[in-house]
């Protein structure tokens, strides 16, 4: 954790985010500062601590049919649609 050597462009690509050069430069500096700040966690001895997790609860849904949306409502927000399908530029496999 010591070296906050974040590759902003690589990470933005993972997150499917275009960045302008100016943005990339600003973020590079700001994120390095933040990572420098969070590096203080290295000081904490966590050798015998389990990671935080929610309580174990069997809060399960019975397999019973519920209501779906009418197609026109389901698609009412879609930026592009045709034949009741949501349309996007051709997907590559």
């Amino acid at each position: 954790m010591a070296s906050p050597d974040i590759d902003v462009r690589y990470v933005a690509d993972l997150a499917r985010l275009n960045l302008s050069d100016a943005e990339a430069a600003t973020f590079q500096k700001q994120l390095s500062d933040i990572l420098g700040y969070v590096a203080q966690l290295e000081k904490v001895d966590v050798s015998s601590v389990a990671a935080f997790s929610g309580p174990v609860v069997n809060n399960l849904r019975p397999d019973v049919l519920g209501e779906s949306l009418p197609v026109e409502v389901a698609l009412s927000n879609a930026p592009q649609q045709e034949n009741n399908l949501i349309v996007v530029p051709k997907m590559i496999e």
Binding site: N59, L60, R61, P62, D63, V64, L65, G66, E67, S68, L69, V71, A74, L75, N77, N83, N84, L85, I86
Partner: peptide
């Protein structure tokens, strides 16, 4: 709790949850 069925008219077995609408949450099927 949408129907799990092969076929069906396109986008007829969908709800805010399985469409990934903002604010929805998953509930696991026992």
């Amino acid at each position: 709790s949408c129907k799990n069925e092969f076929g069906g008219a396109p986008n007829s077995h969908v709800c805010p949850v399985c469409l990934g609408m903002p604010g929805v949450l998953p509930t696991p099927n026992e």
